[in-house]
């Protein structure tokens, strides 16, 4: 059970190619991002990003070894070389980026702390929450964010903290508090678990910025580029209208941007040290960013999260990928 493996190798890409699989650190269970499905396979947005990466590098989405990690051990696992990429709803902050020996390769989900209220309260905005009772999980940044937000907006509040997610929801359902606050993506999964999902709504405000994205070790620029541009390729594919279904027809598209993306012209893949059809494999086997979003957390999933900030820049969101050229 002991395996000798080059630790913190400076050439992760070559290592992945030689061992033939990608080690991907994921969450132990966060619906829509990484959780076991009914067939006991890992599924979710973060999981799909690893699958896309495996398709780009090795041509096969199944060549991923998932390592479920808790929040506390995730960075160590990356630093020690146990995983090649951390794709585990990790918020990009300055401290993490500068002091942990890590690099954030981009953002695959813009999250932020939000509020959920009972519709019967007839509250339309977080500004009307003066004097409300808030339910939240103990020991998270949620409490600190709320304190900051309340001071800034000059409202008073009472808070009840619970140990687990289920207890927070129970507190909200039984009416011990008026508002449940956590990350917006978490609010939507709370709503699906309410006995009457239609009785609650998520307010439009966000009180914190939580950009989530894949993380790699610092000091391996080649691998960093592969991860960053695989993410950009998925976002560009959505912008160019390339989906897993129409990708074969798109290969003969006259749009030069699509030809470059799919590797029919140019050598974009070779510049990353990959096959020129790297993005083709990723999009064909996993789908473009929009497909990944809708399948895991959006319209086609039980969570039904609206695109919001995560819509493309030309459709009202801020998902913007530099061009592949």
């Amino acid at each position: 059970m002991i395996s000798a493996r080059a630790r913190a190798s400076s050439d992760t890409l070559a290592l992945i190619k030689s061992k033939g699989f990608l080690s991907c650190g994921v969450n132990t269970g966060l619906p829509g991002f990484s959780a076991p499905d009914t067939n006991n396979n890992w599924t979710g947005m973060d999981v799909d990003f690893c699958r896309a990466l495996a398709a780009a590098v090795l041509g096969d989405t199944t060549r991923v070894k998932y390592k479920p990690l808790t929040a506390k051990e995730r960075f160590t696992a990356l630093q020690s070389g146990e995983i090649d990429i951390l794709s585990r709803n990790t918020t990009w902050t300055q401290i993490r980026d500068t002091s942990l020996g890590l690099n954030f390769a981009g953002v695959n989900y813009y999250d932020g702390q939000g509020f959920m209220v009972k519709k019967s309260l007839r509250v339309k905005s977080a500004k009307e929450l003066d004097g409300a009772v808030f339910c939240m999980q103990a020991g998270t940044t949620t409490e600190l964010n709320l304190a900051d937000y309340a001071r800034l907006n000059k409202f008073t509040y009472k808070s009840i903290t619970f140990e687990t997610n289920e207890q927070v929801r129970e507190g909200f359902e039984t009416g011990r508090c008026d508002v449940l606050t956590t990350d917006q993506s978490g609010l939507y999964s709370h709503i699906t678990k309410l006995s009457d999902p239609d009785s609650a709504m998520v307010l439009p405000e966000m009180m914190s910025k939580e950009p989530l994205g894949p993380v790699v070790r610092q000091g391996d620029d080649a691998w960093f580029n592969v991860v960053r541009w695989t993410l950009h390729a998925l976002i560009n594919a959505e912008e160019l209208g390339v989906t897993s279904e129409n990708i074969e027809q798109m290969k003969s598209s006259s749009n030069p941007a699509i030809s470059r993306l799919l590797g029919t012209t140019g050598d974009m893949g070779a510049k990353l040290g990959l096959d020129n059809s790297w993005a083709f494999h990723a999009i064909k086997q996993v789908g473009n960013y929009g497909e990944i979003f809708e399948r895991n957390v959006g319209r086609l999933s039980p969570l039904k999260i609206r695109r919001g900030l995560n819509a493309l820049w030309n459709r009202g969101g801020i998902m913007f990928a530099p061009p592949i050229r």
């Binding site: 132990t28 619906p31 959780a35 990690l69 051990e73 997610n165 999964s189 309410l194 006995s195 039980p302």
Partner: peptide
């Protein structure tokens, strides 16, 4: 061991109950 990300029986139950396809 669930605090170090090993999915024993309790941790796998906890992971499964978050599945949004099931209510509480």
């Amino acid at each position: 061991v669930l605090i170090i990300g090993l999915l024993d029986i309790l941790a796998s139950v906890q992971a499964a109950i978050t599945d949004p396809a099931w209510s509480a």
